[in-house]
Write a protein that binds this DNA or RNA. Structure first.
Lengths: 224, 224
DNA sequence: AGGTTCACTTAAGATTTACTGAAGTTTTTC
DNA sequence: GAAAAACTTCAGTAAATCTTAAGTGAACCT
């Protein structure tokens, strides 16, 4: 069982490492956000203990990136901030648990065990993050930060198809098949209308759908 | 055997602590609801002695939260209120026993021993709480506060399936399989009819089933 | 066996919500 | 600057879902 600790403070990091190693975990650690991210992306950790305040990349962004890449790893957030907004936001973007500093080591231990136990269950995964948009495949809805954008089934399906095919041009025919199945079809104009409506809704929520039109070919979402 | 005392009054807390420590229990204590909750959530306590009137989070809410998280812990409610409503409500939401102030220490001791003895048995567990609804998986019934709502088997199964799959959209086909098994099937319209009836019954009891329709996809219960 | 009850299904009407296609507008391309 | 492609809007139409009520059959009781 391999754990990754991403924590700014050297002393806290050390004491966590020692404590958890004594409990039988294998630990890697770093104090840098970017390094933490690249370590996390190797996929070799079952659980990450993650601080929010970090140099180079903050914890929430790191978490969003991990979740966007669909890594199956549990994340326990550690934070000095006690603002409830942060708590909610952290959990929303896919953390499995949350602990506010200061905390007792026993409490951390108990929560770790708890996370281990419910290991098989995916918690808040199955969300695709692009920019400040989150497409929740479980709930079938799109969020801008915390606000939910209400999409009709076809609007949702178009967005889902493009979100899960980033960096690929998707033709209108593909979208049509995606929406209606192999034996029905939806006109190109219909798709244009749905997409127009979806874009409008996202705009009304203060954001932008990152879907670009490739004139003559189809639509695409360009990853960063 | 570790006990947690969550009690507003410092003097009562102290005297309980001393008395119970003399009887051989290990005690943690707090006077604050929110702190009590986070302590309880560590899962390290076998029994919680819980006051109703508390700063920041009241005892009933705390208890509901603990039960919603499926923690296996016994809870003994302590309350100055003598209104029978509170008594019933406290017990309903998952307390294992109830004591009204003032009480003798011997009486508390006796009740504690009693709770310890029936330790192995899960008492009022296997109940899913959502809003003011309690779905009892053992007794196969749904309660609004104190009143029992009489659901037919299929109505119950639909509600059970959705209650135990919070935050997931459940399709009509899934519900059909859940009701009838893999080799039989129940028409979509039938499910609509059952659900309609269940909703009506809950409405008649003065509440609302928290089941939303995701048009084009299925049904969902959104957790907070 | 006959009668009663209860729950499940089905159907039909009401209601809500979404889809489509057309027409006008804007943008892009050559 | 004209033509093509894509965007936008809207109104009519079409689905999906809700609700109610009536029909059917199984289980239970007497």
């Amino acid at each position: 069982m391999k754990l990754l600790i991403i924590e700014d403070s050297v002393s806290l990091r050390r004491s966590l490492r020692i404590g958890l190693e004594n409990l039988g975990f294998t630990i890697d650690e770093t104090g840098d956000g970017a390094e933490g991210l690249s370590m996390a992306m190797t996929g070799e950790y079952e659980l990450i203990i993650l601080d929010i305040m970090l140099p180079s990349i903050d914890g929430i962004t790191l978490l969003q990136t991990i979740r966007a890449k669909q890594l199956d790893v549990r994340v326990l957030i550690l934070s000095a901030k006690q603002e409830p907004e942060d708590r909610v936001k952290g959990l929303l973007t896919g953390a499995d648990d949350y602990l506010t500093k200061p905390f007792s080591f026993d409490e951390l231990h108990a929560r770790l065990l708890n996370l281990m136990r419910r290991g098989g269950l995916k918690t808040i995964s199955d969300v695709i993050y692009i920019d400040n948009l989150a497409l929740n495949l479980q709930l079938k809805l799109l969020q801008v930060d915390e606000t939910v954008i209400d999409l009709t089934p076809n609007e949702y399906k178009i967005v889902e198809c493009l979100f899960s095919n980033q960096n690929k041009v998707i033709t209108a025919e593909k979208l049509s098949t995606y929406i209606a199945g192999q034996y029905d079809l939806v006109s190109k104009n219909s798709i244009e209308a749905h997409l127009s409506s979806a874009r409008k809704k996202v705009r009304a929520a203060g954001s932008e759908l990152p879907i670009q039109t490739k004139r003559g070919f189809g639509y695409i979402i360009q990853g960063k």
